[in-house]
C-alpha cells in the first residue's frame, strides 16, 4: 500500500477545496465540511463506536468549550500556551460599549474591552471528563471508562489540511491502576492498527511526545519519550514523507488525577490514560489514499465504513 503520487501539501488542500469537500474560510486550518466529508467523519466515528461497544464505557459528548477552572487545573496553559484558545467576552455597560466601539485599532479596537470569561476552548476531548469524574468521589474498585467526543481547538494555523485549528476527537478515557492503563493503552493500539488495516490505510505506530512549549517543554518531551508514555498511529496524509498522527495513546501516570483530585477506591491518587482519534484526519487519509469520491473506494473499505450498504 503506497500513495499513487506525491502531492505538495497545498495541492491536496486545493483539491479538497475544488471538490467542495472542505470549504475555505480565509483562515488556514478553519474549514467548513460538505455532506460527503461529514458522511465520512460520521462513518469513522460509528466504526470506532462499534469497536468499543462491548467495553461498557460511559458516553460523554461535549460542546467545544470547557470550564476555565478545569482548563487551569489541567496545567494546559503552563505547557501549551501557544496552542491555547480562550474565550473573552464583553462585560461592560452602555458607556463601556461605546468606548470599545470608538477605541482606535492600534489601541486594541473593540477587543480592548474584552475580558477573560469562565469558559475556554477545549484542547482535547478528554479534558472536560476529568473534573466531572473527580467530582463524583472515589472510583469504583475496577476503575472507570469514558467514551468522550467533542470539537477541539489548537491554535496552529497551517496550509496542511490535516492540521486544522478546529477538529473532532473521539477519545476513550481510562481510570484505574497503572496495570489497567497500560493494558488499555496497548489494547487500543492493537485495535486501532487492525481498524486501519481494515480501511486499507498504511498505518504505523511510533513513540511520540506532546508539543510542550519552550525549553522546559523539551525536557518534558524527552521525559515523556523515555518513559514511553505516548504512542501515535501515523498515516501519510498530505505529505507522504511526514505522516500525520491519526491516533494517540497516552498514559498520563498521575498527572491528571493529581491535578483534579481523582482517587481510587482505596483513596490513593489514581492513574489515567486516553486513546484518541482525530476524525477529520482519518477522513482525509481515506480521501488521500482511496480517492476523492467515496463511491469509488474499494468495496471492502466501503463495507467496513458503511456495513449496511
Amino acid at each position: 500500500m503506497s500513495l499513487a503520487r506525491t502531492l505538495a501539501t497545498d495541492d491536496f488542500r486545493s483539491e479538497l477545496f475544488e471538490r467542495g469537500l472542505l470549504i475555505p474560510t480565509t483562515v488556514d486550518g478553519l474549514y467548513g465540511r460538505n455532506e460527503v466529508f461529514e458522511g465520512i467523519v460520521a462513518a469513522v466515528d460509528a466504526l470506532i463506536g462499534r469497536l468499543s461497544a462491548a467495553d461498557g464505557a460511559e458516553i460523554m459528548r461535549f460542546p467545544p468549550v470547557m470550564t476555565r477552572q478545569g482548563f487551569e487545573a489541567s496545567g494546559y496553559f503552563k505547557n501549551f500556551p501557544h496552542l491555547s484558545g480562550t474565550i473573552h467576552c464583553f462585560c461592560g455597560d452602555d458607556r463601556d460599549h461605546r468606548r470599545a466601539l470608538e477605541c482606535a485599532p492600534e489601541q486594541g479596537g473593540w477587543t480592548s474591552a474584552q475580558v477573560a470569561s469562565d469558559v475556554v476552548l477545549t484542547p482535547a476531548s478528554c479534558y472536560p471528563v476529568y473534573p466531572i469524574v473527580a467530582a463524583r468521589g472515589p472510583l469504583p474498585a475496577e476503575g472507570w471508562l469514558v467514551d468522550s467526543s467533542s470539537y477541539c481547538f489548537r491554535r496552529e494555523p497551517s496550509l496542511d489540511p490535516a492540521r486544522m485549528q478546529m477538529f473532532r476527537q473521539r477519545e476513550q478515557v481510562c481510570f484505574g491502576t497503572p496495570e489497567r492503563i497500560r493494558a488499555f493503552q496497548s489494547h487500543w493500539m492493537q485495535r486501532a492498527l487492525a481498524m486501519f488495516e481494515q480501511m486499507r490505510l498504511p498505518a504505523a505506530t511510533d513513540l511520540a511526545n506532546d508539543p510542550f512549549f519552550g525549553r522546559p517543554g523539551e525536557l518534558m518531551a524527552n521525559g515523556q519519550r523515555s518513559q514511553r508514555l505516548k504512542f501515535e498511529i501515523l498515516l501519510p496524509v498530505s505529505d507522504p514523507d511526514r505522516p500525520s498522527a491519526c491516533g494517540s495513546f497516552n498514559y498520563h501516570v498521575q498527572h491528571f488525577a493529581t491535578a483534579y483530585g481523582i482517587h481510587d477506591a482505596a483513596g490513593e491518587v489514581a492513574h489515567t490514560g486516553c486513546a484518541g482519534f482525530g476524525l477529520e484526519r482519518i477522513a482525509l487519509a481515506l480521501l488521500r489514499h482511496h480517492g476523492l469520491d467515496p463511491q469509488d473506494w474499494p468495496a471492502a473499505v466501503r463495507g467496513v465504513l458503511w456495513p449496511a450498504s
Binding site: F212, R215, P216, E218, L219, N222, G223, Q224, Q227
Partner: peptide, 26 residues
Amino acid sequence: SFGAAELMVELEAAFGIEFPRRLLTR
C-alpha cells in the same frame, strides 16, 4: 516530568545558567 521542568527553570534562575539542549534529559 512537570516537576523536572519546574526544577530546570528554578536552577537556571538561581545560578544564571542555561541548560543546553543535550542536557535536557531525565
